[in-house]
Design a protein around this nucleic acid. Structure first.
Length: 155
DNA sequence: TAGGCCATCTGGTCCT
DNA sequence: AGGACCAGATGGCCTA
């Protein structure tokens, strides 16, 4: 029981380390471990060709509906009025692709951090032996930390 | 087959 | 100007 506070401190610092590491650097080796070669290929800088295949010009245009001369990206309900959009110059294709790559990396590091966080939860949390979803991971983590805090407070 | 989860793309907004 | 973050949409995969 006395180890509890150490455990919490450990967990805390580990989470810190993990998140800061994931956010500050992009370790391709780790990526290979986490996502496998196929994904890696698709994320290496040169392979931004993959993202090209899945990028605005190549795939997204085919994946998302394309209506004639303009590309309709459904669901941009937040898009302001047509007038205000007219005033705003569109991002260049090159810049858009770069932004997409960054966003992809960002979301992957987030997913990786969640995977690692999942490892700190006791196995009881994953019922039926299925891996926890992202949301479950976050919710159970909160639950777990609360439990640990309660235990600490009652010692 | 429907529904859940996930990865990805994208435009908007805020910040440096 | 460009990067980071956010939220909506879409399509693929998987499971009940």
């Amino acid at each position: 029981m006395e180890n509890l506070s150490e455990d919490i401190a450990d967990l805390d610092s580990e989470i810190d380390v993990v998140t800061s590491r994931m956010l500050s650097e992009w370790d391709w080796k780790a990526q290979e471990r986490a996502f496998g070669k196929k994904d890696l290929e698709s994320t290496s800088p040169e392979s931004s060709f993959d993202s090209m295949c899945s990028s605005p010009e190549m795939s997204s245009r085919s994946r998302h509906q394309s209506f004639g001369h303009f590309s309709y990206v459904p669901g941009h309900s937040r898009t302001p009025s047509a007038t205000s959009q007219k005033n705003k110059p569109k991002m260049s294709t090159k810049r858009r692709m770069k932004a997409s790559e960054r966003e992809k990396m960002r979301m992957r590091s987030l997913a990786e951090a969640l995977h690692q966080l999942r490892d700190y939860l006791p196995p009881d949390y994953s019922k039926r032996g299925q891996p926890l979803t992202k949301i479950q991971t976050l919710k159970y983590t909160i639950e777990y930390i609360n439990e640990l805090s309660d235990m600490l407070n009652h010692t």
